[in-house]
Amino acid sequence: MAKNWWKIACVLILLYVIIGGFLVRVPSIGNNLQAIRGIFFHLPMWMSMYTLFTISVVNSVWYLATNDLRRDIRASSASSIGVLFGLMGFATGMLWSTYTWGGTIVNDPKQMTTAIALTIYMAYLVLRLSFTDLDKRARVSAIFNVFAFALLIPLTYIIPRMVESLHPGSASSPGFSSQDTAGTIRMVLWPAFIGWTLLGIWIYTLRNRYKRLVLKNILHG
């Protein structure tokens, strides 16, 4: 029980986020109207994804240093759950943009670069499938993972900030600094970041344990 307090916290926070996210009074600006509530389910997905991809790349580097297969299992589970959260973030973003920007896929730089970054990570997952030798798979995919992470940051963090974009925080629009965001939104948004990130880590630990059970004979044999 003592070790599981964060899972309980995760469930409670997410309950608060979902209930609060739909009930809280939000300012209705422009054509955003009530669609602003999408922020509680769109933005935190990326936080969760970044956290998981960071866990993944740290474990990949760790694998290269130690050659411990368990590190590779951690890296692969983290990145596959990261891709899941990335896809969910993309899906919620598409839903939101359908009603606010007037199109599912608009020519927005951030949307494009994020799609590219997700494809790179999917390529990582496909690359893993193409090996039969476990050690070789671990080594080669760890190297590719470092590449993928090294491109993820410029693609999703640096380039979209330099160009014009419909997303907040680009060259021409304000970001989420504390003066610009309504208090009611902040009250739900910050817990949402923590809640969804915890959920991501929870799913990652489950997948990690499952993968370790699959390879039990090799790891302990």
Partner: peptide, 26 residues
């Protein structure tokens, strides 16, 4: 670099396309 990675795997040419195209897009 991608060729070096792909050389480690068995199905080279196809793998190179899968890995390379997303990376080369930007």
């Amino acid at each position: 670099m991608l060729a070096a990675i792909a050389a480690q795997a068995s199905q080279n040419a196809a793998l190179m396309a899968i890995m390379g195209f997303p990376l080369i897009m930007p």
